[in-house]
Design a protein around this nucleic acid. Sequence first.
DNA 1: TGTATGACCCTGA
DNA 2: CTCAGGGCCATAC
Length: 111
Amino acid sequence: MTQYSHQSLQAIWKAVRAIPPGQVSSYGNVAKRAGLPGRARLVGHALKVAPTELDLPWHRVVAAGGRIAFPQTSRQFAEQRRRLRSEGVQLTRGRVVNEAVTMDELLWKRR
DNA sequence: TGTATGACCCTGA
DNA sequence: CTCAGGGCCATAC
């Protein structure tokens, strides 16, 4: 573990913490806001290894186009969907409904 | 020291 | 909608 990668994880966790309740952001977007453009995969990794004590709002991070990144059959899929709905985020077929989300420019850029 | 695998993304066909 | 292909790179084996 290098000092550098450690700093990257910190930056990512900070960016995730900055997502307001009721809003979602994508892996790629979080990477950008953490100053790590193009490193969406690292965001997934960062969430996976995040200490539980941080209590991050990981459920607000979704894949491109608003899709939940977990398999629909997984426990985590159900948990993420439950958490998002409890914050008022509408979902259909494992996908966030755009109107329910406060605009997040890059995530919804594709008309 | 290589290869494989991911809580990913994007473009093009 | 699906599929392929290229980018990304920390970890696991």
